[in-house]
Design a protein around this nucleic acid. Structure first.
Lengths: 349, 349
DNA sequence: TGTTGGCACTCAACTGGATAGAGTGCTAAT
DNA sequence: ATTAGCACTCTATCCAGTTGAGTGCCAACA
C-alpha cells in the first residue's frame, strides 16, 4: 500500500483545499486550482484508490471527497511542510507573553490566552509537573490559633501555599520549631520522594508533644502533596462557536460539556504526555479525530507541546481545534509559544 | 395604567405557560390550561390591552403572545410568589456546599458550581469586597535574593499573598524588620485606608538604607492593593447550549463571547451592586433583558444576591439565564445558596 | 499499462406552490 | 362587559420538480 508521488500530491491538495474552503473537493475543482498535468478522470481514479486506502471519504455519493482521520494523519506525518511564522506574528506573540509577571502561574495563563487568540481555537496548558522539583524552603506561619499557612518555595521558581488546621494550643514558637525541622531535613528533596514517613522522620527531634506534632506534620505533608497537584488552564472555549465546523450545535455542546470537566481533560493530557515519553519522544503530540478518546472530541484535533521549566520539570501547552485546521501553521504557533514560554520560565528559576 | 385582577391573572398565566412550554401562548390554549370563567374572546380583548401596555408582544401576527421585558418585570415585581425549595433540594445544596474546604476561595467556587448545577444556568460569584476588611497580619518572607513573598491575613478570614521583587542586597533580617514595622503600624486598618503614604510612614523607623527601604515598602503596598482586587468566578458556561432559548447559535456565541471577558462581567456586577445599595437595598438584584447593558445579554436575565463574610465585607453570587426562566424557583435557589454561603463563611472569621 | 473523453447516474440543495393550523381582530348580538 | 362568529394573517410543512457538482465505468488511445 504505497503512495506514488502523484497520489501524495492529490491527497495534499485535497487536504489543503478542504481546509481552506470547508467544502468537499471534487476532481474538477482540483484540476482547476492546482497544476496537475493530467485530466480529471485520472484524478478520479487516484481518488478512488485513496478512498479505497481509507485516506479520504465522501459525505455522500455525489459529493467531493474530504480527508479521513487517516488522511489527516498521513498529511501531518509525511506530507506537510512546517510554515514559519511571519516576523509580525512572532513579534505579536513575544509581546503578549513577555509582559512582565511576578508569578509562573500568570505567565502560563498569558501564554494560554495568547495561543487561543493567535490560533482562534481553544487553548490549554498544564501547570508544571512539580514531582521532580525539590523543596527550597518550607515555612509554617501561624495565622491564628488553630490555623496556619504552609508556604513552600520550589526549585522550579514556584511558590505554593496552603491554609491548614493545626491544634489550638500550639504557639508561634512551637510551630516555628517544627517548620524549621522540616525545612532543615527536607530541603533539596524532590517532592515525589517526600512521603508522610519522611516528613514524620524530619520532625522527630522537635520538642513538641507527640500527638500535636503528628497532626502538624500530617498537615505539612498534605500541603506538600497538594503543591504537586496538576492544574489545567483552558482558554477561548467560546471560539468554538465561531468555527463553521461546529455550527451544528450538538457537536459544540458535547465539546464544551467535556471541556467543562477540566479534571478529565487534565487526565487525558497526562495520558498523552506519558505516551509521548514512551513513544518516539517527539516534541509534539498530535491526536486526530477518533484517535482522541475523550467523549465529544471525535471531530477535533488535539495538539500539545511540552515546555520546560527545568531539566526535570515540564508541562504542556497546546490547542483543541477542528480536524480541519492549518496544521502547518498551528504547529509553528504552538512551537513558538512554547519556546517563548521556555525562555520566560528561565527568569523564575 | 392599572391592571385589573383578571388582567393580572392573564399575564401571570401567559408567563407561566410560556416559561414551561417555550411556545407563544394563544387565547385558546390559555382557556384550556387555566380555569378562567370567561371565553377566549374576552381573553383576546385583555391580551390586546396587555399588548397595548407593552407587557406582552407577538413574534408575528398569527402567533400567540410572549411576555415582554416589561411583562417579566411586572411578573417578578408584583405577580409571582416565591417557591420554597423542597427539603430534598435544600439537602442537596447543603451537602454540596458544606463539604469541608480550607480556603474561602474554594468555598465560593463550590457554591458557584452548585448553583449552576441546580439551576442549569451560568452561575457566577464575586470574591468578597475586601476594602473594608482589615489587616490582621502581614509578613514578608525572603524567597531568594531579590525575591520575597508578602503574606497577608485579613479580618475576613482570607489569606492573600504575592511574590514581589526586592533589592538583591537585602538580607533576611532587614526584611523581617520592615515586615515587623508594617505589621505593627497597620494591623487593624481597613485596606481602603492604607495608601502608599501610610505604608511609607509605617516603615519609617526601620534601620534600612533609604532607597532600598522605599522599594520594599512600595512592593508591600502593591501587594496590599492587589489583595483587595476583585475576582470573579464563572461556572457552567456550557449549559447555555443546552437551553432551547439559545439554540440559534448566534445568540449563544455573543453571550459566551461576552462572558469570556470576565473583567467586563465583574465590572457590570459591581455596577449592579452599587445600584442596589443606592436603590431600595433589596436583597436581590434582578435585571431583565434590555435592562442589562452588557452586549450579548439582551435576551438574558441576570440575578444576583449579596452574601456576607462580615458586616462590612460582602460579595455577590447569582446566575445568568434566559429571560424565560422559573423566576420564583431560581430566586429561592440563589437565596438558599447565599444563606448557606453566609453560614459557611462564619467558620472562617 | 496508465491516461483520457464521454456518458449515465446519484444525491443534496434549492425552488415554488399548495395546504393546514394556530391565532388574531373586528363586529354584531346578548 | 362579554361572547360567538367569521374573515384574515402568517408560519410551518409537505411535495414535486429542477439544478448542478460530482462519481463510476467503459471504451479508446499512447
Amino acid at each position: 500500500m504505497q503512495l506514488d508521488n502523484r497520489k501524495k500530491e492529490v491527497l495534499h491538495a485535497i487536504v489543503d483545499d478542504f481546509v481552506s474552503t470547508n467544502e468537499p473537493v471534487g476532481s474538477k475543482s482540483l484540476i482547476e486550482r492546482h497544476n496537475f498535468q493530467v485530466s480529471s478522470a485520472t484524478l478520479r481514479n487516484d481518488m478512488a484508490e485513496l478512498e479505497h486506502m481509507g485516506l479520504i471519504e465522501k459525505p455522500h455519493t455525489s459529493a467531493g471527497r474530504i480527508p479521513s482521520d487517516k488522511g489527516y494523519r498521513e498529511y501531518v506525518n509525511s506530507l506537510m511542510t512546517i510554515e514559519e511564522l511571519t516576523p509580525q506574528e512572532q513579534l505579536e506573540i513575544e509581546y503578549r507573553i513577555g509582559s512582565s509577571v511576578d508569578e509562573v502561574t500568570d505567565l502560563i495563563k498569558n501564554a494560554t490566552h495568547t495561543l487561543s487568540e493567535q490560533t482562534g481555537f481553544v487553548s490549554l496548558a498544564m501547570s508544571p509537573r512539580l514531582k521532580k522539583s525539590f523543596l527550597k524552603q518550607l515555612k509554617i506561619l501561624m495565622i491564628e490559633p488553630g490555623k496556619a499557612l504552609v508556604v513552600m518555595v520550589l526549585s522550579a521558581g514556584v511558590v505554593k501555599d496552603k491554609v491548614v488546621r493545626i491544634p489550638n494550643f500550639l504557639n508561634d514558637e512551637q510551630v516555628m520549631k517544627i517548620s524549621g525541622a522540616i525545612e532543615k531535613n527536607l530541603t533539596g528533596k524532590p517532592l515525589d520522594e517526600i512521603t508522610l514517613v519522611t516528613v514524620e522522620t524530619a520532625g522527630k527531634g522537635t520538642e513538641v508533644p507527640e500527638p500535636l506534632l503528628k497532626q502538624v506534620l500530617y498537615e505539612a505533608y498534605a500541603a506538600i502533596k497538594q503543591a504537586d497537584e496538576l492544574n489545567i488552564y483552558l482558554d477561548g472555549e467560546h471560539r468554538i462557536l465561531e468555527l463553521p465546523d461546529f455550527s451544528s450545535l450538538g457537536r459544540a455542546r458535547d465539546l464544551l460539556g467535556t471541556l467543562s470537566d477540566s479534571g478529565m481533560v487534565a487526565g487525558y493530557v497526562n495520558e498523552m504526555e506519558n505516551a509521548r515519553i514512551q513513544g518516539g519522544n517527539d516534541s509534539f503530540m498530535i491526536r486526530i479525530g477518533q484517535e482522541i478518546t475523550l467523549e465529544g472530541l471525535e471531530d477535533c484535533s488535539f495538539i500539545t507541546a511540552t515546555y520546560n521549566v527545568t531539566d526535570s520539570v515540564s508541562g504542556n501547552i497546546g490547542i483543541i481545534g477542528p480536524k480541519r485546521m492549518l496544521y502547518s501553521k498551528v504547529i509553528s504557533q504552538i512551537d513558538f509559544v512554547k519556546k517563548k514560554l521556555n525562555s520566560e520560565m528561565k527568569k523564575f528559576t
